[in-house]
């Protein structure tokens, strides 16, 4: 059974971003008017990441003309940081007294997936993965398995993360954001189905992610995929001016000319591979010469993922 990517819904930093639009080292999302997506009673409570995530999800469903998905799966590396920070700061300042429940309620990682379910009145499968750069990959794998196992026909799946002042400060100091990185954020959601919609251009062929592994092993895995699918484009998680050594090694080993970088467009964030997944779709749509696209993503030289999409 094939797994088709039937639609995209995305809220991201302006995809035409140039140096001038990067404000204080950050690329932040261009956000829509949310009043079309939420009633005012909901809007007053939910934080930005829930708005970004839920709205992108709604866009993906609309684009796929799917009203009710059979599963909702979200990947988020750091979850609802704004509400977590808000609750934590007040807890300390107020010495554990007179704390508002709302930020605590919406601080849980599954707030985004559950808000989507609430909006849709959807009682189906609902899960959230939070594992750094594997968060979106895990969600994608789960979606793939549900369709392959015939547990679901239409799966809404996405990756979302936000950058807030606290995390920008702390991630910079701890080195999650390197001096050459631009901090980023965004939400990219997709409807994956076992049937092809009329606008569908791509099929998810393979998804794998492994920890504690050397780049040499990953290159071997990529080569196997290369021979099986004759890959003609590769998307790697680097800024074109600062290409990571692993990305350089993989590009050199596969000798694929069509190499695409995207961190200059969306910035650095844990679920940016969801942005890359959308980029791969767009590439297959706009360049009919491209038939098979490999997405490579890595973290700390030890955790790697390979996602393969094919034109269909």
């Amino acid at each position: 059974m094939a797994v088709y990517i039937n639609s995209i819904g995305q809220i991201a930093p302006n995809s035409l971003a140039n140096e001038e639009q990067i404000i204080a080292g950050k690329l932040t999302c261009i956000e829509p008017d949310y009043s079309a997506f939420f009633d005012s009673r909901t809007l007053r409570r939910i934080s930005r990441i829930i708005k970004i995530g839920t709205t992108s999800a709604m866009m993906a469903l609309k684009n796929a003309t799917v009203e009710m998905p059979d599963a909702i799966i979200v990947g988020t590396g750091f979850g609802c940081q704004e509400d977590t920070s808000l609750f934590l700061r007040k807890l300390i300042t107020n010495k554990e007294e007179t704390l508002n429940p709302t930020p605590f309620i919406f601080s849980t990682h599954n707030s985004i997936a559950s808000q989507i379910a609430l909006q849709l009145k959807c009682h189906a499968y609902n899960s959230t993965y939070s594992h750094r750069n594997f968060s979106f990959e895990s969600a994608l794998l789960d979606a793939y398995l549900l369709i392959k196992d015939d547990d679901a026909q239409h799966v809404l799946v996405g990756g979302v993360d936000e950058i807030i002042d606290d995390s920008f400060d702390l991630f910079t100091r701890i080195g999650y954001l390197k001096p050459t990185d631009i901090a980023g954020e965004g939400a990219s959601f997709f409807v994956l189905s076992d049937v092809k919609s009329k606008d569908c251009v791509a099929e998810l062929k393979s998804i794998e992610f492994v920890a504690n592994t050397e780049i040499a092993t990953i290159i071997d895995k990529a080569k196997t995929l290369y021979h099986e699918y004759s890959i003609d484009a590769i998307i790697v998680g680097s800024h074109p001016d600062h290409v990571h050594q692993n990305d350089q090694d993989l590009i050199a080993a596969l000798k694929i000319e069509n190499t695409i970088f995207y961190k200059q467009l969306c910035g650095e964030y844990a679920t940016s591979s969801a942005y890359a997944f959308a980029t791969a779709n767009t590439l297959l749509k706009e360049n009919k010469a491209v038939k098979n696209v490999l997405i490579y993503n890595q973290y700390a030289n030890s955790n790697h993922s390979l996602i393969l999409l094919s034109a269909c």
């Binding site: 979850g79 594997f134 920890a211 504690n212």
Partner: peptide
Amino acid sequence: DCGKITDFVAKEIGIKGMVTTISTA
């Protein structure tokens, strides 16, 4: 972050394959 715990323990026990973390309350 949630993934830190999983990554750390996975490395300690010698996992070289898939690792992930679920957070559904």
